[in-house]
Nucleic acid binder design. Structure first.
Length: 581
RNA sequence: GCGCUCAUAGCUCAGUUGGAUAGAGCAGCCGCCUUCUAAGCGGCAGGUCGCAGGUUCGAGUCCUGCUGGGCGCACCA
């Protein structure tokens, strides 16, 4: 298919008491970590204990829900497990909650437990337990946030795949940012990821491109169905420079095709590289036709009995697998239809050993999902497992309150370069990944170019530079980070540590749901926000000639940990974490 | 006409597996700088989660219908 967008273009701990291994240098005592997964284990252990001593007669659930409450005042963490167990236990939820509360309160690291509302358990952690997260972050460093949810998966992630007939337009740019971020998230979650670009160098669109180049070189008007923008003349010019006698050759169009396509492709690769996106594999559609892969894929489907002949053409019975209509694979003129390339390409990816094939497409290709899923099933695979298709909505750029439609650079649709030129790579990438791909977004160029907290990427980067700034000044004053993190009991400190503790689960969730925007939202609403609030109320460095406070050294540890999370988080999005701004 | 998708504050958007009083930022109003970057922070105000039903102890979240945006519906690629 044409991949162009519209204008064509963490182990479970069976015991509540556990010896910390990650932060031995900070806290020698037995503590429940603030890692939500560990707290979940603690809650489950409390349930198991209540069941063991016969107070409650229910199967112990494999998984219990422990989450950060949405509302302040509902604890550091909260669980609705009592509500879930009330029915099977045949007891009022608050009675079940009371039993679990009694067990939970015995756990070290848990400061207090409260029964609230219909039977929620609100849990407050001790300052020492909270402080432990600082040690965990610093011990892991750049690896903090990595997890195992996608461990063992071999994923092929195809995105962008814009046709080499023009610059990458804004739709493709969204996928470049989101796809690359998703690749990083999946890698951080333990998957082996291959970033792949399907280079569509076969077919009629390329023919039109070649004819357009030829026309431009001859000074003629663009062909009716061709491309006529400024970049065409530019590419034609370059081909002419490379091959001065091109116009007098036997088949100049063929020269323009070869040279033009590679020039255009190199330009696309270069702009993506400048955007921080590099692919492991650039797959040429032509190679599928040349190698006989297309023929083999069709032969395979014939063997499986999914092909039939009608009206002089050969069809794939995709309706058997939920598609709207059957699809022509070989046209009545004997030529393979476009879908034949997709058949061969999917099979090729599976034969290369990928157990999960993910393809990111624009909303204008939502109609392709049915047939591609049918194809997947026809090959005997499981749709939505072996093959996943992510559909992203379109992006609008807004300048001075008006939608921007045309590129100044070449008079066509807005390109990658236009966007980067307007707001820079960091802002562009961040703007594109901070919203769900399901929603159509407006990017206000004035907002994203501004240096104030209205600008989300600026806000997050500013928090990172504040961390760097404090640490730099501390170094100048010969103040070392260290001391007792248990001294970090200020509400702003607790809030920040709770935020830092969430990072690995945010990464895991974002990877599993293929939603990189969750990381961005977490960084701005939880980490950057808490860090700014910490900054505002918790002076770290001694003022004037004052002596350092006992909290000075542990607060420096907290700033270090904050810096790590911001760097790691931004890194997953392909956005820099500057030292200064 | 059929299919996919979206609809949450004036605006731009969060809210996976159903849980408490639906959140953030901007815009508006009121406060906080002899202090590590005020390029910041706090507070007030702002909502029939498009509409109507249904399932459930409980629905923004699941189901059905409807309305309104976006996208798509070729032996084109």
């Amino acid at each position: 298919m044409c991949r162009e967008g519209v204008p064509r273009g963490r182990q479970s701990c069976a015991q509540v008491h556990r010896t910390s291994t990650d932060s031995r240098w900070l806290l020698p005592c037995n503590l429940v970590s603030v890692n939500p997964a560990d707290l979940r284990s603690a809650v489950r252990a409390a349930v198991a204990a209540v069941v063991d001593n016969g107070e409650l007669s229910v199967p112990v659930p494999d998984e219990v829900t422990v989450e950060r409450p949405k509302v302040k005042g509902h604890g550091d963490y909260a669980t609705s497990v009592a509500l879930q167990l009330a029915k099977p236990a045949g007891l009022p939820p608050r009675d079940v909650a009371a039993l679990i509360k009694a067990q939970l309160e015995r756990a070290d690291g848990i400061d207090s437990v409260e029964i609230a509302g219909p039977g929620f358990l609100n849990i407050w952690l001790s300052g020492a337990a909270l402080g432990q997260v600082v040690g965990e972050v610093l011990a892991a460093g750049a690896a903090y946030g990595t997890n195992e949810v996608a461990a063992g998966q071999n994923i092929n992630l195809e995105f962008v795949s814009a046709n080499p007939t023009g610059p990458i337009h804004i739709g493709g740019v969204r996928w470049a940012a989101v796809g690359d971020a998703l690749a990083r998230l999946l890698q951080a979650s333990g998957a082996k990821v291959t970033r792949e670009y399907y280079f569509n160098d076969h077919g009629a669109q390329i023919d039109r491109f070649a004819r357009s180049l030829l026309a431009a070189a001859r000074g003629e008007a663009a062909p009716e169905d061709g491309y006529g923008s400024a970049y065409i003349a530019e590419i034609a010019q370059r081909v002419t420079e490379q091959v001065p006698d091109v116009l007098s050759q036997d088949d100049p169009q063929e020269v323009f095709r070869d040279r033009g396509v590679s020039l255009m492709f190199e330009e696309i690769k270069a702009s993506l590289h400048d955007f921080g996106v590099d692919f492991d594999v650039y797959f040429h559609e032509n190679s599928l036709h040349d190698s006989g892969a297309v023929h083999r894929a069709i032969e395979r489907l014939r063997g499986l009995g999914h092909m039939y002949v009608a009206d002089g053409a050969e069809w794939l019975r995709t309706t058997q697998f939920g598609d709207d209509k059957d699809r022509v694979v070989i046209k009545s003129d004997g030529e393979p239809a476009y879908i034949s390339g997709d058949l061969a390409y999917y099979l090729d990816k599976r034969e290369r050993g990928f157990d999960r094939v993910i393809i990111m497409l624009g909303a204008d290709h939502s109609g392709y999902v049915g047939r591609l899923m049918a194809m997947c099933e026809a090959f005997g695979d499981v749709p939505r497992v072996n093959l996943q298709i992510l559909i992203g909505q379109l992006v609008n750029l807004v300048k001075d309150g008006e939608p921007l439609r045309m590129s100044k650079r070449n008079g066509t649709v807005i390109s990658l370069e236009d966007l980067v030129e307007a707001i820079g790579v960091d802002a562009a990438r961040y703007a594109l990944v901070r919203s769900s791909a399901d929603s159509q977004i407006d990017i206000d160029l004035d907002l994203w170019a501004s240096a104030k907290s209205d600008n989300p990427v600026w806000y997050v980067q500013y928090a990172a530079t504040r961390a760097a700034s404090v640490l730099r000044h501390a170094a100048d004053l010969d103040l070392a980070a260290g001391g007792e993190v248990a001294l970090l009991t200020h509400p702003r400190e607790s809030e920040l540590m709770l935020a830092l503790a969430e990072f690995p689960s945010v990464v895991a969730t974002a990877a599993e749901l293929r939603e990189p925007h969750r990381v961005a939202r977490y960084l701005e609403e939880k980490v950057a926000k808490s860090a700014q609030r910490f900054w505002d109320e918790c002076q770290v460095l001694p003022k004037g000639d004052a002596q350092p406070e006992p909290t000075t050294a542990p607060r420096l540890l907290l700033w270090q940990a904050t810096r790590v999370v911001l760097e790691n988080g931004l890194g997953l999005l392909g956005v820099s974490a500057p030292e200064r701004m």
